[in-house]
């Protein structure tokens, strides 16, 4: 499927005009993009490091994961909205940028993996990790830790590829 037309449309849109002409606003949106990344990745790091028993060991994991959810969604909305605005300024350049596509693939994978596998596995964490009281049918501890590592890896790639778009 050829999706270059999306980039052509974005490139010709009023959003692109605005992004190219107002440097001050553009820099503020860039800051929002970074701040949203901090919120999103900060909450993800907290949840995953908790499940790896690296931070807040012994504190019920369900409480931590539940609390991070709302901020993860706010952070996601922030990076996506500010990201669309930023990309409109260089839409045609991004259409052929491999780091951009790697970032988008990572973003899609990260969201799907987070909402499906990670969410299901973390809610069935064994007592040794979750500290939520004994569960009748928990997932093995090593599986929980494997999921945490894989999840951290995906979001690291999203952030690192994002930074590298600027250098390429």
């Amino acid at each position: 499927m050829d999706i270059v037309f999306i980039f052509e449309w974005l490139d010709a849109s009023w959003l692109s005009d605005l992004a190219r002409t107002s440097a001050g606003l553009f820099s503020m949106v860039q800051a929002v993009h970074i701040l949203s990344m901090i919120m999103l990745c900060g909450m993800i790091i907290l949840g995953d490091l908790r499940m790896l028993n690296v931070v807040l060991t012994g504190v019920p994991s369900a409480v931590i994961i539940q609390n991070t959810k709302k901020w993860i969604y706010i952070g996601l909305a922030g990076i996506i909205l500010s990201g669309i605005y930023e990309s409109s300024a260089i839409a045609m350049k991004l259409a052929t940028n491999s780091f951009f596509w790697a970032k988008m693939a990572g973003l899609a994978m990260g969201i799907i993996f987070m909402l499906s596998v990670r969410s299901a596995v973390y809610s069935r964490a064994p007592e040794v990790i979750g500290s939520n009281g004994s569960q009748s049918d928990p997932v093995d501890a090593w599986v929980v830790k494997l999921v945490a590592v894989a999840h951290l890896f995906i979001w690291f790639s999203v952030a690192a590829n994002g930074r590298w778009i600027g250098f390429s």
Binding site: A120, D137, V143, L146, V149, A150
Partner: peptide, 22 residues
């Protein structure tokens, strides 16, 4: 989904992601 199946799927997905990442 049983916990056993979930564990297997999660482990498989994670291993694929970690190897792909590497």
């Amino acid at each position: 989904m049983t916990t056993n199946t979930l564990g297997k799927i999660a482990a498989l997905c994670s291993v694929v992601i970690i190897i792909g990442w590497g």
